[in-house]
């Protein structure tokens, strides 16, 4: 009885995470198309990576843990999806940060709504290498 209730709770938490991830992914996709330049699109891509990749993977792992009709296969699927979610949350911010740094240094996109750019000033003074 108790295990059935825990199974049900885990299943519905996973389902909520999957649907929340889908909605956040849709919002991020709309933002990718509406923002004006690369530095603004980075915000939407962060929502797409964490909201659209991390949440649904955790949710699918939780769902597959509770599915009795999958037999022992559910543990393999849950393990792989938790591992994938872990590596995604570890690598996605580092990757987009490196991409932003490369774009800023190579100057192929101008940061448009900007107040102050200390990194560019330091590069022009010669404090850090270009």
């Amino acid at each position: 009885m108790m295990s059935e209730i825990i199974n049900m709770l885990v299943f519905y938490i996973g389902l909520i995470l999957v649907f929340l991830g889908g909605i956040l992914d849709l919002l991020a996709a709309i933002g990718m198309n509406r923002f004006k330049n690369f530095y603004l699109r980075l915000h939407a891509a962060t929502i797409g990576a964490i909201g659209g990749g991390f949440y649904p993977l955790i949710g699918l792992g939780l769902i597959s843990l509770t599915l009795d009709w999958m037999g022992t296969n559910r543990f393999y699927v849950a393990g792989i999806s938790f591992t994938t979610a872990f590596f995604l949350v570890l690598t996605a911010p580092v990757g987009s940060h490196a991409l932003a740094q490369g774009t800023h240094k190579s100057r192929i996109v101008e940061p448009e709504p900007i107040v102050v750019d200390r990194l560019r000033e330091d590069e022009e003074k010669g404090l850090i290498e270009k």
Binding site: G21, D25, A28, A29, M32, F38, R41, L42, A45, G48, A49, G52, G53, P56, L57, L60, G61, S64, V77, I80, S81, T84, L88, A92, G95, S96, L99, A100, G102, T103, I108, V109
Partner: peptide, 22 residues
Amino acid sequence: TLPDMVLAVDVLSYDLAVFIII
């Protein structure tokens, strides 16, 4: 520009990972 395309490919591949698990 090139970084825009790379950003889009990134998020597309995260979506593809979710599709694979489903």
